[in-house]
Structures are given as C-alpha cells and as structure tokens.
C-alpha cells in the first residue's frame, strides 16, 4: 500500500521473479552471461542506495523477497513471471516450480504464471495440462526469445502457438504475459518485433495480452498495436526503472502510453529482483509529468491514473475485489507482521 494524495492505494506488482542465478546453477557460459547482463541492468538504473552486491543478486532468499516486496516495497500482491531458460540453468532460472515455493506459503500474495513453448509440439499438451492441474496457474508468461533445441525463438502467431492458446481457453486461463522487451533472437525482422501479438490478440479477443516491457525498444510499434486492440495491455517493467535516474525519459514514455494506450490498460511492474519496488513505487506515487510534456502530449498523470496503474487494472484482469482482498491480506502472516510493525 502506498499513499497518494492522502489515499491508500493497493499495489499489485505485475512482474516479479524468484530466481536462482548462482554459479552452482549455471549450465554453461550462457547462464553466467545471462545473470551478469541482468546485473548490468540492475546497476544501470538503480539509485545508489538500492544497489546489491552481485552474489546476493545472483541468488537471494525467501526472506529477502518477502521484505523487499511486502514489508518495505509497498507491494500488496505480486505476479510471478516464470522464466525457464533450461538451456542456460541446470534447474531453470525461475520456473513455476521454484516460484511456487513462495506462492504456496503465501497463497493470497502471489499469482503464479506458467508457460508453454510451441516447439514442444503436440507432445507438450499433456505437460501443459498437468502443469495447470498440479499448480495454481492463473496466467502465463511467454518468452518468445527462449532457446530450445537449436531454435532461438518463436512467434505468437505460429500455428502451434495458436493450439496452445486454444488450450488456455479450454482451461480457463485468460491472462497472457508476453515478454516483448530487449531481446536477442530471432534474427529475421519479422520475429524480433511485437507484431505477432497483434495477430494473436485479434484472433483471441477473449484473452488478455500483457506486453511486458511495453515492447521497449519497440515502444512505437507497441503503441500502434495497443491502440487498435482492446485486449492488449502495457506492462511497465523496465520502463518503470527509468523513473529515478532517467526521469525525463520515463515521463516521455508515460506520456506516450497515456495517449496511445490509455490509463486503463497500463500495469505496474518492477521486474524484481532486477530492481526493488520500494524506490520505484515511492517515486511513482510522487511523480508528475513536466509541464512541457503535458502540453506537448495533451495528457496528465493524475492520482486516479496512478491508482489504476499501480493496482486496479491488474485487479480487474485477475478478478480481484480489492476491498475483500485487503481484508484477507491483513490476516496472513505478512499482514500481521506489517500491522505489528506499524503498531510498534
């Protein structure tokens, strides 16, 4: 919870991880390069006081996670964007199984994403069904740049991807988080951009597609698509981290999103543990668009828009009644710890 304009605002962090990037888990040089690259992102945009040593960044504890998100980070609920990378990490990077360790302990705090990969083919349908049966999977995180058996990526518009999306329909999974951010592969111009989301969103109007990282560095392409498609949403992870050290760019990104996508379709995300939510949420609560940007774009970031972006929009997508959820959360171990520390 964070106070904006004298009002308490419910915060859903739409993009969090509980990963193991430690050397013991590296399968090869890619695992090492992966976590080092993440650490570069961490260093590049974190304010000084929020910088971690590399060893902690590679593998942090359950206690760290609970403290960084809920005790200090103003977050009420978090969405685990499971990322597998089994070709880089022996046990995967942050699979739904790993994330479930925390989700199981604090079931009201976390939303667990599963995943599919169309390159599993039909043989993967059973794996997918089992995952949904065995774990409380409420949504998916898709990573189209994942390496698999010599292939280095796929598209949401691939026919086999459509078969899996049909399966999502059948199993009642409505929210699809898609990583469309900084990416490596695939190589050809069609595949590394965000347009495949456009096809899938048109053909599956009953599913919601949350484009993580707002397509950066393809923000413009993303904006055109999100304006046309009712069911395409903007996930702010990575963009939100510009707020402290590059506030002008953050303001320009927000102004464009507010104009093209609209305040009802933007979801907050910190990308924890690349960045801790505390400083981002606090800065966002205080943030005002500079006057010239307001004028130029004809938009504003009012307290109502902040409330929607921080929590209400995600709550709507996930069918969460915020008042009822608050009452539930007050009684869980984290809620009790928060109440005790406030009383003290």
């Amino acid at each position: 919870m964070i106070t904006i304009d004298g009002q308490e605002v419910f915060v859903i962090d739409g993009h969090i991880h509980f990963w193991d990037g430690s050397p013991e888990n590296w399968r090869n040089q890619w695992g090492e390069a992966w976590i080092k690259c993440f650490y570069d992102y961490h260093l590049a945009l974190s304010p000084k006081e929020a910088v971690w040593p590399f060893e902690k960044f590679a593998k942090y504890s359950e206690e760290d996670t609970i403290r960084d998100l809920f005790i200090e980070g103003h977050v009420d609920m978090g969405i685990f964007n499971s990322t597998y990378l089994r070709e880089f990490f022996k046990n995967g990077f942050n699979t739904h199984e790993q994330n479930y360790v925390l989700a199981q302990k604090y079931p009201d705090r976390f939303i667990l994403c599963g995943s599919f990969d169309p390159r599993w083919g039909e043989a993967g349908f059973d794996i997918f069904r089992r995952m949904v049966e065995q774990y409380p999977i409420r949504s998916l995180k898709l990573y189209t740049a994942e390496w698999y058996n010599g292939s280095r990526g796929w598209k949401l518009s691939d026919p086999m991807a459509y078969r899996y999306l049909e399966l999502c329909r059948e199993l009642g999974i409505k929210n699809i988080h898609v990583h469309k951010g900084p990416t490596v592969y695939p190589l050809s111009k069609d595949a590394f951009d965000v347009h495949d989301v456009d096809y899938a969103a048109t053909d599956f109007p009953d599913l919601n597609f949350i484009v993580e990282h707002v397509g950066l560095p393809r923000l413009d392409d993303f904006c055109w698509i999100a304006k046309q498609e009712k069911n395409v949403y903007a996930g702010l992870a990575v963009a939100s981290a510009f707020i402290a050290t590059r506030p002008r760019y953050f303001a320009e990104i927000m102004a464009n999103l507010l104009y093209w996508v609209g305040e009802d379709k933007i979801l907050f995300g910190s990308d924890y543990a690349i960045w801790t939510p505390k400083w981002i949420v606090e800065a966002f609560a205080r943030f005002e668009l500079p006057e010239d940007i307001k004028q130029e774009h004809g938009v504003d970031l009012m307290p109502q828009a902040k409330r929607k972006i921080l929590g209400e929009n995600a709550a709507r997508l996930y069918g969460i009644d915020i008042e009822a959820q608050k009452a539930k959360l007050a009684k869980d171990p984290i809620g009790q710890q928060l109440a005790a520390s406030q009383a003290a």
Binding site: A44, P217, R218, F242, R246, Y249, N256, W260
Partner: peptide, 12 residues
Amino acid sequence: ATVVNLRASTAL
C-alpha cells in the same frame, strides 16, 4: 512515439 523509443533505448 518513435523518437522517445529511440532516445530511451539510447539511454539504456
């Protein structure tokens, strides 16, 4: 929109 994308990418 095109330009803010380019500038943000450059900054990153």
